[in-house]
Nucleic acid binder design. Structure first.
Lengths: 206, 206, 206, 206
DNA sequence: TTCTAATCGAGACGGTACGTCCCGTCTTGCC
DNA sequence: GGCAAGACGGGACGTACCGTCTCGATTAGAA
C-alpha cells in the first residue's frame, strides 16, 4: 500500500482510514481480478466481497484504474528483482531467465499483466507506472549482467546492450505472454546458448 | 466478413441481412474500437454511430465478443501474409521482419490486438481464433523461409526451427508490442544479423 | 367486414385482397383479444397466429385501433338489437332487460367493451363509432317501448324518456359492467317493478 | 402514498427512499397518465419527466401496474368519502349524488378510472384494490343514508338496500362514465325524486 | 473521560448500457 | 399486384453497475 492515503494523525479529532478495511479491500480486489479480470471488474463487487461500503473504496482511490494500479504496484514491488551473480556469464543468464520464467508463470500476474498492458496504450499514467515499476527494474537486472561481462572482457565493449537484452528476454516473454505456452528447462538452456552465440558474434551498435 | 450471416435467397421468399447495413456497422465498430477500445466498447454506441437499431447488430452476431472477433478476423485476413523469396537468406529474413513491422505499426490493430490478447486468456474461442487466424499464418512465413534455407544447406538440418522462429520474431514483437517503441531500419538490420549468427552457431534440438 | 378493403377486381392485372387471408386475420385477432386484451394485443402476434405476414394486416387497415374498431363493429352489428313487443309494458321491459343481460354476459364482448370504452375517451373516432354502432341502436329499443306506452296512455306524455331510459338500463349495466356481478332473474324482476314505479310516479321534464 | 416504502431508520445505518424523489415521480406519473393513459404509459417516460433514473421507480414498485395502483389508491383515498346528514332524506340523497358527480367530473380520475376498470378484468389484484379502496367506501355512504331512513321509519324495513343503492347511483354513473355526458342540477333533482318514488313504492327483497 | 469529527456499512441517487421484444415500414422473391 | 418472411430504425422493457451522495452508528485522537 503506497497510494495516496491520509494516514498520519490529523489535527482535530480522530478519523483515519482503517487498516483492516484497506486490507479487506485489497484481498477482495485481487480475488475479483483473478476471477473476472481487470476489464470486467466492478467496484461494486469488490466492495460487496470485502464487506465494505463503496464509499470506502472511493475514499482511498479516485477510480478503478487508480485503485488497481496502486494495488498491483504494491504487489509487484514485493516480487523480487532477482540479480544472480556467480560470475559465469552463461550460468548467470540462465538463472536470470529462470527467474523471469517463474514470475511470468504466476497465472494471476500474467492475467492482470496482459490486461494492464492493453489498457496502458490508452492511459499514459498507467503506461508510465508499468514502465518504471515493472519493466525498468527487470530490464536493469539483465543490463547489469551484460555490463559486468563487458567490463571483464567476456563480451566486446561495442555490444549494443539494448538489442542484446531484447535477444535474451524477448523469446521467453513472447512465448509465455503472447503464445501462452510453457517453457521447459531445455528451452531455457538452448535459448541461453543461442543468445550468447549471437552476442559473441558481436551485436554492434551501427 | 466470414460470419454467420444468412445471405443467400431462402426457399420461400423472406428477408436477408442487407449489405449496406453490415458495412455501416463494420465501419462504426472499428471507429469505436479505435476511440474507446474493446473493453469499453458499447453495442449501443456502435449502433448509434452506424445509424442503425441495436437489433441489427444482434441479428448478425450473438454478442459483443462474437461481433468483434468476426470483424477483426475479416480485417486481419485481408492484411497480407507476405512471403518474400529472393533466395538470399539474410535478405529474405530482413524483408520478413520489415513486413511484420509494418503490420505491428498499424496503431489500430496494435491497440485492438493487445486487448484481444488480454481477453483471450479468459475466452478460449477468442484464443483459438487468434491462433489460427493471426498467429499461425504469420509464423508459417518464417518457418517456410527457414525450412528453405535448411533444404539448400544454408542452415544445419538439426536446427530447432521453433526456437529459431522465436529468436527472429520475438525481439521485434517484444519491442513494438510490449515496450511500445519504434524499430528503425538499423534495428532491423542488426537484429537480422544477430539472429542469423545465433542460428548458424547451430540452435539444436535437444 | 365493412371496412376500407379494395375488394372488387381492379383495372390492371389481378391483385385483390384475398378473402381467406382476411378471415384468418379476423379469427386470429378475436382470439388474441380474448387472451391478451386490446391494450396488450400486438399486430405481430395476430399475424403470427393467422399464419400471415404483417404487411397483410397493414394492407387492410392503417393501424391497430382501426383494425380492432372495424372488426368489432362487424361482430357487434351481427348481435341482434332485440325489440320485444307483447304490448304489456312490464313484460316488454323485463324482456328488454333480459336481452341486455345476455349481451353483457358475453365475456369476450364485456372484456373488449370495457377496453374500447376506456380507449374512446382518447379517440374521438372510436367514441363516435361506439355511440352510433353500439349504444344508439340499443338505447333505441328502450325508447321505442317507452314511446309506445306513452302513445297508449300507460305512461304520462310528460315523461322524460331519456332519464326514464337511464333508470331502466343503468342499474343493470352498472352492476354487470362496473361491479362485474351477475344479475339473476329476481334482480331483473324487482328492477323492472321499481323502475316502472318510478316512471309512473311521473318523471317529468323540468 | 401507502405503498411498500422502507422509510423508517433501519438498524445499522443505511439508506432510505427520499421523499422528494417520490413526490417528483408521483407528479410525473399523473401527468403522463393524463396525457397518454394507463395502457400507453411508459416507465421510461415517467422517469424522464421526473428527472429521475428508472431505478428510482423500480426501487419503489415492482412493476407499472403496482406503481399506478399505489399512486391511484393514495390519491383516491384523499378525495373525500362525503357523508351528508341533514336528516331530510331527499336533501341528503341529492347532496350525495352531487358529491358523486363532482368526483366523476374530475377528468383525470374519470380517464384513469375507465382504464383501470378495463384492466381490472384481467388483473384480480387491481380489481380487489378498486373494490375495497374505491367502490366500497363510496357505496357505504349511500347505504348509511338509506339505513338511517329505514331506522327512522321513512323507508320500509323490507327495502332491498342493495338494489336501492343501484337505482340511486347507477343512472348518474352510467351517464357520466359510459355515455360521457354532463349531468346538470335538474337531472340530479329529477333523478332524486324518481329514485325516491321507486323506493317508497317499496323495492323489496324477493 | 468527554468531546468531536472523520470513517464506517448500507444503499439511494441520476445515469448508461445491457440484450429482448414489438412497433409500423420496407424489401425481397414467389405466385 | 398480393403474398409470407422477415430485416429495418426506433423505443421501452427490467437489470446491473457506474461514481456520487446521504444517512445514523462507530471509533479513536485531542481536550
Amino acid at each position: 500500500m503506497t497510494g495516496q492515503q491520509k494516514k498520519g494523525p490529523t489535527a482535530t479529532g480522530g478519523a483515519v482510514l482503517r487498516e483492516r478495511v484497506t486490507e479487506a479491500i485489497t484481498e477482495a480486489a485481487f480475488a475479483e481480478l483473478a476471477e473476472t479480470g481487470y476489464a470486467r471488474l466492478s467496484m461494486e463487487a469488490v466492495a460487496r466481497r470485502a464487506g465494505v461500503g463503496k464509499a470506502a473504496l472511493y475514499r482511498r482511490w479516485p477510480s478503478k484504474p487508480a485503485m488497481i494500479m496502486d494495488l498491483v504496484r504494491g504487489r509487484v514491488a514485493d516480487s523480487l528483482p532477482c540479480i544472480p551473480a556467480t560470475g559465469d556469464l552463461h550460468t548467470d543468464l540462465r538463472a536470470l531467465l529462470a527467474s523471469y520464467r517463474s514470475q511470468l508463470a504466476n497465472p494471476l500476474l500474467a492475467l492482470i499483466g496482459a490486461e494492464l498492458l492493453a489498457e496502458s496504450r490508452r492511459d499514459n499514467a498507467l503506461a508510465q507506472m508499468l514502465h518504471t515499476e515493472v519493466a525498468a527494474p527487470r530490464r536493469l537486472a539483465a543490463l547489469a549482467i551484460l555490463q559486468g561481462a563487458i567490463d571483464q572482457g567476456e563480451l566486446p565493449p561495442t555490444l549494443d546492450v539494448e538489442l542484446a537484452t531484447d535477444l535474451l528476454i524477448a523469446p521467453l516473454t513472447f512465448r509465455m505472454v503472447i503464445l501462452d505456452e510453457h517453457c521447459d528447462d531445455e528451452y531455457l538452456e538452448t535459448l541461453t546458448s543461442a543468445a550468447l552465440a549471437a552476442l559473441k558474434a558481436s551485436v554492434r551498435r551501427p
